[in-house]
Amino acid sequence: MVGLLLRRGAALLLTLVAASFLVFALTQFSPANVARETLGAYALPEQVHILSEKLHLQDPLVVRYVRWAEVLLGLRADPLDDPALGLHIHDPRGARYFGNFGYSTLFHEPVNDIIWSRLANTAVLAGIAFAVIVPLSMLLGILAGMRPGSRLDRVLSILSITMTSMPEYALGVILAAIFAVWLKVLPGTSPLAKGTGWPLASQFLLPVAVLALYDSGYVARMVRASMIEVLGKPYIRTALLKGLPRRRVILRHALRNAMITPFTVILLQINWLIGGVVVTETVFAYPGFGRMLLQASLFGDIALIEAATLVALFVAVVTQLLSDVGYWLLDPEARG
């Protein structure tokens, strides 16, 4: 177990380094330019050129990447922080500290002042949605998989396919139309602000509902398929013909085996909930991570894109690690 964690941990670190370099390289090919974005749209080409010189933007890619990594690790002061540039930007944490992602050109603030609050907002939304999706889809998938072809199974299949095939924005707009516009029982937007007249908790209901409805069907179908496969295995027959009641066979013999395959899929939902709920957050004006990433991309806010991508990647790699550990715990054969 310790060996597994160490190996996976090392792989995690390597993945982060490789991916951060790729992201860094990609942003260099985008039309946005650090100097241009920092100075704003009305800066003269000469000013952009001078800043580029000062930031050494003509250096080779690898050299710039190493410099960027040194700033991130706190080994070097952020060049933009230099008062001599006259950019009037200032990080209260100082110019040199571990985890320095630089300045957001969109918000004119240090990236660290923006990204973590957005991430926290998204984590709350994702956490609630995850807590709804997992039990709901497991229950539906198991019930449907226990008796394939039964009325319950068909109803659940049709419902889950319908929900999954409906785009998130359509689902969001429909729910908002019903509950916010027509019934007027829920707020149509969720800016998480106090002054809207709606209690904070009520602002979560519609976004969570959209995410849960959209995603549960998909996960439930995975669980259903795995359940059907496991119930057809010879060891289930062994258990039944031992004289065990069906209930016990399902609880003791089928469930754990049926969870092995969908487990990875379930954990992948965390990645989607953190980095991929752009549409839902935008529809409900939710101040979350996905919407921030969208804004940063549209504006060409390179530092913010880099930071957000790294954070999303970190989440993805950690869930991967979790899924490996879970697999290791669920399947004795993986343990050798």
Binding site: P234, A239, K242, N257
Partner: peptide, 19 residues
């Protein structure tokens, strides 16, 4: 089942629960 009449199966590898 399993008490008065019991079965020995063809493929022991698949007749036992792997987990």
């Amino acid at each position: 089942r399993g008490s008065r009449i019991a079965i020995v199966y063809q493929e022991p590898a698949s007749a036992l629960n792997p987990t």
